[in-house]
Design a protein around this nucleic acid. Structure first.
Lengths: 234, 234
DNA sequence: CTTGATATTATGTATAGACATAAAAACCTG
DNA sequence: CAGGTTTTTATGTCTATACATAATATCAAG
């Protein structure tokens, strides 16, 4: 075993991964500390740190000060789902995009937006190749995003307007399968009760709620992504 | 504006985030280079690099050598969904876990596993508080995971056995809403055609397929997670 | 005007050394 | 021996410097 063949942090990361996969370091095993690894690999400790750190980010290692670095017991699968702008998502699939506004009202916000202020309620349908793709049912908090009141949302969707206008710091998202309501079924051109994929999302800017949205996708919709921590895998 | 108040990379990251949110640096804007930022913040370039790098990982910045660092045009929402071991998921919710094997056969694998080799086909139901929670319909590639042939899978599930036994380098996952088939409906104690949440997953170790699985969840299931890049947000 | 070689530049990454910090381990005390 | 205090230790992070690399910008030659 000659040393000094691992010149960069990615090579070190790959070697560590190899040992994990080869069961040299089984789940739960505490691996050598950074100083020792640096010596073995013939590099600086900072380089080992970089490699291990990003493996820890990916969930394959668990690190605690003083306690050392252990191979994660449950190599937690983490899938990163990207939440795209709907128009982009459709155009990326090579389909033609169309947008149709259904309703637009100012009313008192429902519970999740923080009961007090007025809200803008917008419903719209996004089409792909002239068939309905997804229903956007959205509440916008007019207290935090007053500019929204002046937007007609008849040409560009609230979805698109918000991402380039209202910044958010964090949010909450959930996926579910639900039966289409009568109204949804009509808009999506399907039968009531048909299983539809639903995304509920709420975004805040610090403590202020910005918007809540329910996206109801036409039957057959499928979210697709990879696991294995992207660049790391292999 | 005194300088040298940003002592660590996280403080710098927060300040950069603040400027993006405050529209000092709007989407598409090219921000100052690392040397200048380091001087402004009164720290080393490596520290600025660390901060910007992790923002780029999170998708908020786009960096190219020589071209510089730009604020992403579409601040892509990225949600990281963790794929837990089913037993853990149930127990984490404070429910009692139970497992029931339905079928276990060795047969020729279906297409996705790579048509050639033999496969182990296991179907099972995981229960939470004595009601069916999810159906696990799995094929295991016996060429790559021969040990699986000796596992009865009557006590511990294939799900659990695999995560601690067969390492994988990457995978593919998709979520969808589908109507329950007659068999699924029976196992989940619901009506045929009821919308159910389905996760399809396939994992490989390098080029070798390890397993494909379809998880069909009982009605009402919901995947839930946060957006806003975890630690970064605020 | 186009093409290709060359210089410039911003990020990418390595290094050695230092100090900070959290947490386990060892050491006291009563 | 229980409980608190100190020591030790592995990771976390910063600094300053250096070189690598990719991509743009520049400029000369055909």
């Amino acid at each position: 075993m000659s040393e000094a063949q691992f010149r960069n942090w990615q090579a070190i990361q790959a070697e560590v991964l190899r040992r994990i996969h080869a069961r040299n370091w089984p789940p739960g095993h505490t691996i050598p500390n950074e100083v020792d690894l640096a010596q073995e690999f013939g590099c600086a400790r900072a380089t080992v740190n970089r490699a291990l750190q990003s493996l820890a980010d990916a969930g394959l290692l668990e690190r605690r000060r003083k306690a050392g670095t252990r191979v994660a017991l449950h190599p937690v699968g983490k899938a990163t789902v990207t939440i795209p702008v709907i128009r982009q998502e459709i155009e990326d699939r090579g389909m033609t995009y169309a947008y149709r506004l259904i309703t637009r009202d100012i009313a008192t916000s429902p519970a999740p937006l923080g009961a007090t202020g007025p809200g803008l309620h917008v419903t719209a349908v996004h089409h792909a190749n002239d068939s309905p793709y997804v229903i956007e049912d959205r509440w916008i908090n007019l207290t935090t995003v007053p500019d929204a009141a002046e937007q007609p949302f008849d040409q560009i969707s609230a979805n698109e307007w918000l991402v380039t206008t209202a910044p958010y710091t964090n949010g909450d998202i959930s996926f579910a399968a639900e039966p289409a309501t009568a109204q949804e079924a009509q808009l999506l051109n399907t039968a009531e009760g048909t299983p539809v994929f639903v995304i509920d999302r709420i975004t805040w800017d610090h403590d202020q709620t910005i918007t809540t949205v329910r996206l109801t996708y036409a039957p057959g919709y499928r979210i697709h992504t990879g696991i294995g921590t992207g660049a790391i895998a292999s």
